[in-house]
Design a protein around this nucleic acid. Structure first.
Lengths: 226, 226, 226, 226
DNA sequence: CATGAATGAGCATTCATTCAT
DNA sequence: TATGAATGAATGCTCATTCAT
């Protein structure tokens, strides 16, 4: 019933108006949810007529999908991954704090909620979100961990798993609470405490202890940062 | 010219019919989402008239809340927490496997999705779910960890945080993937692998190196990752 | 579809419970209107079950009709008609004040409103109300006027018309305003002013300038309009 | 995420369609009453879709109010008030006959009934009706009476009250009977009789006895006017 | 290409009435 | 006789979508 939609539409029509519609749609969808949002509201907020909405997007569902996919593309680039350093602790902590601060922002929570809800209806959408979000961050972090492993300050078999575990340890307790509305946001102090605990656990599990690493560490700073 | 009811209705009338309605409602809500479910459908699936629905529950919202709360109550009792044992590894692993198997069941995933979606609209519901679900498990696990701490096999400052971290390490990578539809379910093998890794990380972070294990640990880096 | 209802039901069942139902029905109907009243509310306010309602009355309409007819019977007896006196002015004024005070009571206004509304649906009910209310008062007043006419202090051809005109002059300006919600009630002062003006107009139109009153009237003009 | 509209909608869109809706609404409301009328019926009778109803009017209530207000506006203009003339009798009688003929038309009776019923629910509507109907006529008539008073053919203190009394005398007996369904309409003959009686009473109460009548009045009328 | 009036199926909810107990 | 749970048609209202302009 659709057809070449996806690609055709991404390129179709005035890109400026397309963007304008998506911006209006984002505000309304995030505020009211997929079902709660009405095309009327979206048209009004976007400043176009209802008819125009249907020129650019075949249906409410199509518009929603396009919106989520577009957003993902932009957000992945906002995160700064830890630069190499002799001791992973500080960079990991900085990365964790940054990540959790981003993830617990109300708009991000709203978006995650709506995507999770939509996944039941549009499985491909949830998958796309997962791959460009959690998965993407995991891969990038794993690349950094690998550098430290090669430098001999970390040891693990499965870098992806270690990266994932670190991220989940950082989220532990703050993200889930926000998602279920048990907390509105996480305060910087709370985030810091949580991330520090995560770093501690992570380092005990994967840090190379011993005189060996110590002696390495003495000279290792330079080698590590890759 | 109205009535008190609230409590009367929560517990009201024929409990069998109440259950019958909740069972129908569960099927429809999980299949179609909160907004997607129609009271008409629920009545049909439950095998009662629309009017009867409103005799037992004041509104769609009320019915949904009752459903989620009831389910929570039942599910909390299904989990068996690790019994005391000299070595925490096996009990923790058993607990983790059981927990993750439960959490990655398709119906559970569907329910979590719908609750997260509903949290945007009814924050109290999300909070209730969080408290009787994630939070509850955390507290119970923390109690067990405390036993081991007093037995001298674990050491930590904050038992709640440790418990939460263990659970998040178990979920790491499988639950989130299911939630976003990136995986349909987790295979027992996958769960086992993930939970074992979680136990390993947890024990390295919080385990007390006893004389026995210490000798292992000296050379144990290699042994561990298996 | 009914049958011997009216009479059968008037006599049927426990008269005490019948009264109890009618009392509850009155409160609800007057508060909420015919359509606004629900049989549920009536049952609750009357303190009987919904089923019992239908044992005593065939339908909501039947109950409503019975209620209005019963009420009419009682109210007609509340009015005291002017006793004979040499000069009609004082008795007429007293009667007028009493009548208007009764007619502008909020409950009476509510009842008149609901009956007028119901007349569109149940014409016989409006007619019954009219005959036992306005019409009845008119006839009784006409009887008194006739006494004065025979005493030679009033003169008119059509006693019914004169009576009706007097009543309408009394109501003039206060009753209609209440009926349309332009006034909540009429204050005693306002009623008195209006009734006095009515008496004045009525006496100028129908009073016989007797020798006695004439001598008064010669100088009395000033006294009158006060 | 809503709109201003109120005024926009009162006057909004195609005036022709607005009129079309109001015409349909009038037929249904007058036939079935406010509660008895369904928006579905109104849409069908008006020949528009239910959705269109709500484009032009925010709610059933709004539609009803607009209908009543519009009708009022038109009807107020239909009445011709008595022109000045030396003798008020003929103009007053003509005015009275015209007014009562209008007020006893079945559609007018139906509308008055429905407004009175609605007043219990929407007091502002009753008040608006009163002010643009009874009140308005009263004021206009009082203006004419004043002309006669200045010409020396009528005398009174309170022109508004006199006007109101004249109107109520005209209505006396016919309007109330129609309202309660005790009469279907008033025949021209009946109206004429009633209005003539009203003029008679009114002139005796407020007329200045002319030279002609004065000789008669020498013993009565003159004294009266004070 | 853009508009916004029009559509009508669909929704949550209410309520007069019935009937097994 | 009295009950109140159950019914299901009907209600006011919304909204994704279409289409004439």
């Amino acid at each position: 019933m659709e057809a070449p939609t996806t690609d055709a539409q991404v390129a179709a029509h005035e890109p400026a108006k397309r963007r304008q519609i998506l911006d209006g749609a984002r505000r309304v969808f995030l505020a009211d949810g997929f079902d709660g949002a009405s095309m009327n509201d979206i048209a009004r907020v976007a400043g176009v007529s209802k008819g125009t909405l249907y020129v650019y997007f075949d249906s409410k569902e199509t518009l929603f999908e396009a919106l989520i996919r577009d957003d993902r593309k932009q957000q992945a680039e906002r995160i700064v991954f830890p630069a190499g350093a002799a001791d992973p602790r500080a960079p990991l902590a900085a990365f964790g704090r940054q990540l959790i601060a981003l993830m617990t922002q109300p708009e991000m929570i709203a978006q995650v909620r709506i995507v999770i809800a939509a996944t039941a209806k549009f499985p491909s959408l949830g998958r796309a979100f997962y791959e460009s979000g959690p998965c993407f961050g995991e891969i990038r972090l794993a690349e950094r961990l690998e550098v430290w492993r090669q430098a001999g300050v970390l040891q693990f078999d499965d870098g992806r798993r270690a990266a994932r575990q670190f991220i989940d340890l950082c989220k532990s307790g703050v993200f889930t609470a926000c998602l279920f509305g048990a907390a509105d946001t996480a305060s910087p102090a709370e985030i810091a405490r949580n991330v520090d605990a995560a770093v501690e656990v992570f380092m005990r599990a994967y840090g190379v202890p011993s005189a060996a690493s110590m002696s390495l560490a003495i000279v290792g700073g330079a080698a590590i940062e890759a």
